[in-house]
Design a binder for these strands. Sequence first.
DNA 1: ACATCGCTTGATAAACGCTTTCATGGCTGA
DNA 2: TCAGCCATGAAAGCGTTTATCAAGCGATGT
Lengths: 337, 337
Amino acid sequence: MTRRPHTRPPVLADVARVAGVSVPTVSRVLSGSAPVSADKRRQVLRAIQELGYRPNAAARALATGRRSIISVLTSDTTRYGYASTIRGIEEAARAVGLVVALTMLDGDDEESARVAVDLALDQPLAGMIVLEFDIQGSRALAALPDTLPVAAVSSAGQGRSVPRALFDDHAGARDATNYLLGLGHRTVHHVGIPPSGRPSGRLLGWREALEAAGAPVPEIVESDGTPRSGLQAGARLARRGDVTAVLCGNDEVAFGVIKALQDEGSRVPEDVSVVGFDDHPLAEIWTPSLTTMRQDFAELGRMAVDFLLGRLAGVPVEAPRSTPRLVVRKSTAPAAR
Amino acid sequence: MTRRPHTRPPVLADVARVAGVSVPTVSRVLSGSAPVSADKRRQVLRAIQELGYRPNAAARALATGRRSIISVLTSDTTRYGYASTIRGIEEAARAVGLVVALTMLDGDDEESARVAVDLALDQPLAGMIVLEFDIQGSRALAALPDTLPVAAVSSAGQGRSVPRALFDDHAGARDATNYLLGLGHRTVHHVGIPPSGRPSGRLLGWREALEAAGAPVPEIVESDGTPRSGLQAGARLARRGDVTAVLCGNDEVAFGVIKALQDEGSRVPEDVSVVGFDDHPLAEIWTPSLTTMRQDFAELGRMAVDFLLGRLAGVPVEAPRSTPRLVVRKSTAPAAR
DNA sequence: ACATCGCTTGATAAACGCTTTCATGGCTGA
DNA sequence: TCAGCCATGAAAGCGTTTATCAAGCGATGT
């Protein structure tokens, strides 16, 4: 049982009284905004120590007008890409003394986007970062008032209304597809994940590469981005019979696809090559280890913060961009002849 | 290029002026704390709409003394257990109109714990939840002032100084070990993950079950909780030669252990049974699918919030407790004779 | 019918805890 | 002795909420 102190917490005036100085003097010691003589400073510090004084954040925010919260809006916090981006944002924010507030967007109608946004805006925000990896993110972006500094983290080629830190999954998907074509596969199938609005960059890059190579463009197999949906997608691919190469929208889906293919008797990579997207921590110890497009999400999150802060400071910053890199492992092989 | 409005945001006084009423009247419309005539109310609402007014959270917090932020301290945001717990916390907090602030504890010395705690305390906090899954969490807990309402999420059997929402991994590990012994295994090896202080509940439950059954207690193999470290642990186990059953500290480690065992020529489950902990989303599609102790982290997070809120309201709430449940899949089998 | 009372509604003012501007008084240095 | 500097304190905000007060107005009692 911890003692619940019913006495109100000490305030600046208490410190001043105990130290025998005026309120502004204490404030100056705290902020260093003006010189204070050595012994007064010492007395003040001692009083602070003694009383266990902590500045009231609300009062400080009100007086200074400085905001110290970055709000992050996201539809998910557990999946790899999301969680890593959030980690990057938090690290960068913490490095400059800002705190990250997290609000989930659950429900993909506009009403719930509005509710979530309202909740987030109830805080005194320095700025906001929206993870626009999916439709929920886009909805939230649309529901934001334009008076607030916002940065989105999203796939290149989305709308241009809001400043964005971009990951170029368009180029990434093109590279991955070309890699598979280069292995001799006649074409490449695609397991899509839910896009944030228009067709995803991954889809576009994939299609572009196929068309450029004169390869047929197969029908897309949809998934919701989870391993379980990958399982279903894999089963459908296995039934087609003519599939030799698959590009998946993310690694979690790729895991499911591989599993389903194996369950249906296809060997990976001997019969079917599979490429993922993101480089999930388990990709390298999957069986077979997964060839994937590595995406540095944490870096992306950090870039988003720097970008937002730069804009806040009035410095014109170019929208940062991160391009995924191919990591070749054991889930891909030259086409069988 | 979005228009950057250099005009300061509208305040209550602006609304009052536009609506032609006094400031407190606007406030009353907003909070409903006192009746306001119908047409004044209408005018006020129209003015709010027109100006795009948003109450200043800092001012409101200062005036009311109400705090709307729950701070979450955690050493990790990406791993499954952590991320899921955070999700549960966020959901429960949002349901009651609170916002979650996330601060990472990175560095396991006391100094960095103090820095992180200070940053978090710079906000006007309703309360704090510490994820005490590891030593960083314990450090942070120790660095907290005792004037703040705190709840920890931790393993049963840890210290009692702070109110905690508990997950009973002690009982879970005992159950898992008994299950393996029941399959006829002579003993069960354990791959540990970093504890939060004293020996982890998982370790204790495991040892307790072995001793109760009169089985030998093998030396523990350590890991850091990542798949990669599981790989090393698995390799070491494979070299021992006499291992037929392994209880892993979490699923990520179990994945690595299985992979390494397979690489070394052991079959799972025919030669070695492996049990994980947590029920990671990939556990069911691993090859072989992973038998594990399912832990409902999201529920645990929700319980922690309810617990904290109950204590804040002065209602004496019993510390909630969640016990993991065995999920049998294909990574375990009766001992070979 | 008139003064009185109670009730609704609006306004004035104080408070929340801090920062910041400005004025003041004591020093220093020439 | 006086200009100039420094440390310090008094006071005015920051944008809300809330208590207190005053005014308006219909209803009531005689």
